[in-house]
Design a protein around this nucleic acid. Structure first.
Lengths: 251, 251
DNA sequence: GACTGCCACTAACCTATGTTAGTCATACGG
DNA sequence: CCGTATGACTAACATAGGTTAGTGGCAGTC
């Protein structure tokens, strides 16, 4: 059931990118999936391995990260149900980062060879998968800006806005209220800050009346001001969610 | 002549990614190119435009960047001869960043529609182009780490190592000596620092005997120590240059 | 129902990097 | 050659965010 949902989620997303045929849809549904459930923090892919399988996230959240020589972690992206986790690697020789479960996750793995085959034999699927990776890239680029040129409060506000719209677009939450699937330390690893400072910033965003929190639940109280503080524009997400690009009134 | 060189450069690179056929090579050579020479700082693509043409860099250097609401620039990538500049955009609806000439450049532009067609009708070329964008992504990811989790001296050292290996792999310089095609202010925009601090760091790298400089010419005096300081490993570049992955003795 | 571990949160202090405001050398156009 | 940019470089000072070292709440477990 979950499996079915996860796969249909992908098909639905791909259909917004390219007009799939019945044969395309059938090919996706009949990929040789293997199912697994993993606990939080379980590794899905490890740096240095050759890519063997490509995982589709059916439920839960996963994150991509690297660790510096000094042992500091930087989170590179966060993924949600309906996303392939390893398209970034499946066509390269070696994996250059780790992918780990953020929450309990259900995944469906496909051998890399089968992914390569479907991309080649079904050009529209190949196109849609390529676009998926290009959107990942667009988000990477925005994160370089976030971490390179914004101050702490903007970084955190920006990330909160991004998650809001992505969760909404994926149909996993409304844009104004969602459960942040990570600890403050992980949010620090997303934003290039320390957990202590993330805590200070979250408190400040609360004081300013931009967000309200209850444990990890986030409510965006004032989207316009939060997105202004976070210097957020949805353009880089390349969503087709009908939300206007500038200072969107989401929800 | 230059044109010829630029195109053959691309073909050569793509052949390391997928075994192209004669028909593939011919298809690349007969793409409907339009040639232009641009001065430093000229815009090649602007944020917010729909992608119309895809530019191949024949000579010189170009950079990709975004500007925050506060007006601060963050450089996202630097590109050299033989690279397509806009594969990141050509399959998306709207361009989410600027691409500008860093030096005087020669470019060959192809209408986006022609790029889409060649990718679809020649699967091996499509595959090679996809891999190109995946390697761009891998570099974006490393830059997130660089700017998010390394201190100033490591960031600059890391960038110097990256350029060394990329220039060498492209056959544009030896790994131990090259001309850095940018001002210290632009290097600051690459590393998320200020020009003042980049200057301090370059001086320090000189004092420690890791590099020597003459204007913008950089000589890497001690590759092993520089790459250690920069926490640099070539893995993420996915080069086939025969250079070992860890603390490479390049050159 | 005490123990353990994890996570949110805080306070006091510290430092890497930013800011401001220059000087100086070089390249270029008239 | 003179005037004007531009970029490399410097010094003095300012601060955002890091570091260290905690406390307390809560969920799981034996």
């Amino acid at each position: 059931m979950l499996v079915h949902q996860g796969i249909e989620r992908v098909i639905r997303r791909y259909e917004t990118r390219a007009p799939l045929t019945d044969a395309d849809r059938a090919a996706i549904r009949t990929l040789p999936f293997t199912y697994r459930t993993l606990d939080p923090a379980a590794y899905i892919v490890r740096e240095g391995e050759p890519p063997v399988v490509c995982a589709l996230l059916l439920s839960g959240f996963a994150y991509r990260h690297k660790v510096t020589g000094e042992g500091e972690r930087q989170i590179l992206s966060v993924h949600m149900a309906g996303e392939f986790l390893d398209l970034q690697n499946s066509f390269l020789d070696v994996v250059d980062h780790h992918v780990q479960a953020l929450t309990r996750v259900d995944i469906a793995s496909v051998p890399v060879a089968a992914m390569r085959r479907i991309a080649e034999s079904h050009p529209l699927i190949g196109r849609a998968m390529w676009i998926d990776t290009l959107i990942d890239s667009a988000i990477f680029r925005e994160w370089i800006v976030n971490v390179g040129r914004r101050d702490a409060i903007s970084r955190v506000a920006h990330v909160l806005c991004e998650f809001a719209l992505r969760l909404k677009a994926a149909g996993l939450a409304t844009a104004y209220r969602y459960e942040l699937p990570m600890t403050q330390e992980q949010l620090a690893d997303v934003t290039g800050l320390t957990a202590v400072h993330v805590n200070r910033v979250l408190k400040e965003l609360g004081h300013q009346g931009l967000i309200a929190r209850d444990k990890r639940a986030v409510e965006i109280v004032d989207w316009d001001r939060l997105s202004a503080v976070g210097d957020f524009s949805a353009r880089y997400l390349h969503l087709d969610s009908g939300i206007p690009v500038n200072s969107a009134s989401a929800g």
